[in-house]
Design a protein around this nucleic acid. Structure first.
Length: 924
RNA sequence: GGGUCUGUAGCUCAGUUGGUUAGAGCACCGCCUUGAUAAGGCGGGGGUCACAGGUUCGAGCCCUGUCAGACCCA
């Protein structure tokens, strides 16, 4: 190579683009976001589809709780929803998305009350609202930053007065349909703070209580008068409310004569076999020697018999329950339905009734049935109860028992379980329709159907009242005389007031004001309870879908994490069945929880101090939203979703590849005008036809995958298409023609024609996932409108045939054989690049390789070798490689026999000499 | 403890109605490339398909059990 050789590089058509190689997402995404917002892009999209008369697709947003920052689980959910909305929009639907927030509820109230003590209810509510609004703003910013499109200016909030009014009106409908009743149910009660508590407001502290063994003689059945059950309890004060004894149906119980330590007394007792030793050790009562005195029975054998209460004139029913354990006690559990939640459920199932003879201060009421106990505090009464048992000869043993016992977080006093009046919805009236409706809904994954069916089948009546402040008040009144007024008309009047004034009205005015306003008798009090927040969110189909002009019921899709089978999906279904007799959704999709990639365990906020970041903002700030979105698309949402920082690095690599593929396509199209330069289909070469056939497959597959919400199939398909078909094959193979052929040559224009179509379709297919990057690339291709206003491409049937694909698949075998041989030579350092190889390819006859497209020239191009001899009709596929003896063309770097054949350009091959001639002429 | 699920290379995923040596991408190792260059190409190593039984001529795919994990309930 002489020093004064012409610089042929300037005669090449090298790729050219300003589309940056690096995404710089963290910096660049906010700019695009701003542009979208300024242009009102979401509104444009919705308006456009509406104008087209596009069919509706309604994804109804389940409202996240307005508390805390957006963590990865919430981000996953929101991005999945956005993938649905964007892909349905691009599939041609009018898919408005109205996001919402769940605002009422204990966690917020608890934080407010904790921060400032002694607040009046109205103040608690004002501060709770401020708290909720603060986090709504924080979360909204994160969701927007993630590229989620929606009506962010007008989201629905469960604290909106109109929403609250609809909750109350919905309650009125419940009443009208005879679904509401009043009944007692035990709650965690703090007599120190005189209020009901939630589990979260309870602190566990060590406490010593008397644990006692109490005899209950059997009063009916075969063993009546012959034998006694023995219970063990750490709350002797609940014995006056005892209404049952629970045995495990499958446990083995021993019936035997026992004698006490002194041997003076003998009792015939029934004790779980596994707890016999413990019982003897703790009480001193031991079985009389000799097997003839012992018999065994199953818990199931005694079901239904009655036992005599040790000091009250009534009996306790023996029932079976699976929660009975063989760890402590006797295997017979004292059941006081008014003083425990297991007890309550067991009482319901066995019609035991309910007693709860304790007032707000924790003192016994008349109902206790023992005159001397009335007015005594329950914990003080423990000792007296024990004495009474002793007097009656029912006490078999006593010990001091140290245990973790719940205490009030505020007053630090021990908690008692105490039944208070609550309001319930009769689920039995809704259950048959609810179950029928479940089978009309499409559940994704399909097993979701079983999950919700199971819960609806077995759920007890719905307790809808809460002794809380931050919620929608129960519009119920208590007149000075007579029953509680649960009246739909009254409730609607209240709702109308709430509609304009908000629910704070309930707390800002006193009973007298309300009585006068509603024309109720003087002295009428209003209910101080609020509604269960599951009513709030479960009413969204009424307050949002029915109300919003762009939406309607039933929604096409609800999409939440699997825990909502029991939560929102169920509450929405129940409310909907109650008010309209049908399900509020046509389809329900659930995704798994985000779990730690390494341990496959749920990421907890405190994993032994080594807290891993899980805030979405952390990852947005470090990688950018498109990476997070790409991660969401790559993952199997049906199961637990693995998550970790390494995964983001991995996803970033995939992103880089896709981005660079878009970039090289753009760069190769810099001088291409689709209108003027596009080539007819029949002018395309083998490789062009092949990539368009591949494109046909990709477009078809992605449309199908998007339709089924199988985003990771889209991810895999497009990743494969970019990495293998485009980057490693098509772009690599066409480099020579793109760079070295004359700019306007048919062959080059053919490839640009194909690349232009590939770029457009690929960008559109990526748009729902890479919301920012695809829009950026779209812009760089010269488009003035956002890619998000486009529709998905339609597969071009001209390339559905697959002839080129069959040929290329055949050639891929030859390519593998050649590459392996070249690699050997390369490792031996006999050649460097592919173009330095002289290849002899033995090719067996194949109809696929005997067509117009599979010319020797096309094969050489396909294999990216310059010196290729093909022996067709060989017995088997094979390749031989040695260094080529041809000279290297200084322009296209191929080693060809034609180099130097044109005297004007001794360093160039035929083709290049021709091209350079043209270019120079053009320049001149 | 119960219900509903899940378990394929280091990681994320494919594996068609059970049928020849289980596939990609990323990561890893080696080489090439400086005309996609904070890019690109080629080659390679790596899986007893959680484990143990069973059905079958034949199982990653079907059945049973065990183990591990997730959600809900208790």
């Amino acid at each position: 190579m002489s020093q004064d050789a012409p610089n042929y590089k300037d005669t090449l058509n090298l790729p050219k683009t300003d589309f940056p190689m690096r995404g710089d997402l963290v910096k660049r995404e906010p700019t695009r976001l701003k542009a979208w917002e300024d242009a009102g892009l979401y509104g444009q999209i919705v308006t456009k589809r509406k104008a087209e008369g596009a069919p509706d697709f309604i994804l109804h947003d389940g409202p996240p709780f307005a508390n805390g920052d957006v963590h990865m689980g919430t981000a996953l959910n929101k991005v999945l929803k956005d993938l649905v909305v964007k892909s349905r929009t691009m599939a041609g639907y009018h898919a408005p998305y109205v996001p919402g927030w769940d605002c009422h509820g204990l966690p917020i109230e608890f934080k407010v009350v904790k921060a400032t003590r002694g607040l009046a209810p109205a103040e608690i509510r004002t501060q709770s609202e401020a708290y909720a609004r603060k986090y709504i703003d924080i979360q909204r910013n994160s969701f927007k930053r993630l590229g989620v499109f929606g009506d962010w200016g007008k989201p629905y909030l469960t604290l909106d007065p109109s929403y609250e009014a609809d909750i109350v009106r919905t309650f009125a409908k419940f009443v009208e349909n005879d679904l509401v009743y009043r009944s007692k149910k035990p709650v965690l009660w703090s007599y120190g703070a005189q209020t009901a508590l939630a589990e979260a407001e309870v602190e566990y502290q060590k406490r010593t209580d008397p644990a006692i063994f109490v005899k209950f003689p059997l009063a009916t059945g075969e063993l009546a008068g012959k034998s006694s059950l023995v219970i063990w309890t750490t709350t002797p004060w609940t014995l006056p409310a005892n209404l049952g004894i629970a045995l495990h149906p499958d446990f083995k119980y021993v019936r035997a004569d026992f004698t006490n330590e002194s041997g003076e007394h003998t009792e015939n007792l029934i004790i779980a076999e596994d707890l016999l030793e413990q019982f003897t050790a703790k009480t001193g009562w031991k079985p009389v020697e000799g097997d003839e005195w012992r018999t065994t029975l199953k818990g199931a054998d005694l079901e239904g018999v009655e036992a005599q209460h040790p000091f009250l004139d009534r009996t306790s029913k023996v029932i079976n329950a699976l929660f009975v354990t063989a760890e402590t006690g006797t295997g017979a559990v004292h059941i006081a339905p008014g003083h425990g939640s297991d007890d309550y459920v067991a009482g319901q199932q066995n019609q035991l009734g309910l007693l709860s003879p304790v007032d707000d201060d924790g003192n016994f009421t008349d109902e206790v049935g023992v005159p001397e106990l009335v007015g005594q505090h329950v914990f003080k009464a423990n000792e007296r109860v024990i004495e009474i048992l002793k007097e009656k000869g029912a006490l078999l043993g006593r010990e001091d028992y140290l245990h973790e016992y719940p205490h009030c977080w505020r007053s630090k006093t021990p908690i008692i379980f105490r039944a208070v009046e609550q309001y319930f919805i009769r689920i039995d009236k809704l259950r048959p329709t609810a179950l029928e409706e479940i089978d009309k809904v499409t559940w994704l994954p399909h097993w979701g159907r079983n999950r919700i069916y199971g819960t609806v089948e077995s759920r007890p009546d719905w307790c809808i009242s809460r002794q809380r402040t931050w919620g929608v008040p129960l519009p119920i009144f208590y007149p000075p005389q007579g029953e509680a007024m649960i009246d739909p008309e009254l409730a609607r009047k209240v709702a109308d007031l709430f509609e304009t004034e908000g629910t704070n009205l309930w707390f800002e005015h006193d009973d007298a004001w309300w009585a006068e306003k509603l024309g109720l008798p003087e002295g009428t009090r209003r209910c101080t309870d609020t509604l269960d927040v599951w009513i709030d969110s479960g009413t969204s189909h009424v307050a949002v879908l029915d109300k919003h002009p762009e939406l309607h019921t039933p929604a096409d899709l609800y999409l939440e994490a699997t825990d909502q089978h029991r939560g929102w999906f169920q509450s929405s279904l129940m409310v909907s069945v109650a008010v309209r007799g049908s399900a509020p959704y046509k389809a329900v999709m659930t995704h798994g929880f985000v779990v730690d990639k390494d341990s496959k365990k749920k990421i907890s906020k405190s994993d032994g101090g080594r807290t891993k970041p899980m805030d979405a903002e952390h990852f947005i700030g470090k990688f950018g939203s498109d990476i997070l979105r790409l991660w969401v698309s790559s993952v199997d949402w049906q199961n637990e979703v693995p998550f970790g920082e390494e995964l983001f690095k991995q996803t970033s690599e995939t992103y880089r590849r896709i981005r660079n593929t878009l970039r090289i396509l753009l760069a190769n199209l810099y001088d291409f005008d689709p209108v003027a330069d596009a080539v007819e289909n029949d002018q395309l070469t083998l490789i062009d036809r092949w990539i368009l056939e591949r494109l046909h497959g990709v477009v078809t597959d992605c449309a199908d995958a998007y339709e089924k919400y199988e985003f990771r199939r889209v991810f895999n398909t497009l990743n494969q298409f970019c990495a293998v078909d485009l980057s490693s094959l098509y772009v690599d193979i066409t480099k020579d023609r793109m760079y070295c052929d004359a700019p306007g040559s048919l062959r080059r224009r053919a490839t640009q024609t194909a690349m232009s179509r590939v770029f457009e379709d690929l960008t559109k297919l990526l748009a729902p996932i890479l919301a920012f990057t695809s829009d950026e690339a779209w812009e760089f291709s010269g488009k003035t409108e956002s890619v998000h206003l486009e529709r998905f491409p339609k597969p071009d049937t001209a390339f559905a045939g697959g002839e080129a694909t069959e040929t290329v698949n055949e050639l891929m075998k030859a390519r593998a054989a050649v590459q392996q041989e070249i690699e050997k030579a390369r490792q031996e350092k006999t050649i460097g690049s592919n173009l330095e190889a002289a290849v002899q390819l033995s090719l067996p006859d194949s109809p696929l390789l005997n067509n117009d497209l599979a010319t020797d020239e096309a094969l050489g191009e396909f294999l990216i070798v310059s010196d290729l001899k093909i022996v067709r009709g060989a017995p088997e596929l094979g390749a031989e490689v040695k260094p080529t003896e041809n000279a290297k063309c200084q322009r296209c770097w191929r080693h060809l026999s034609t180099v130097g054949s044109q005297a004007e350009h001794p360093a160039l091959c035929d083709r290049c000499a021709d091209v350079v001639g043209t270019v120079e002429l053009n320049v001149a």
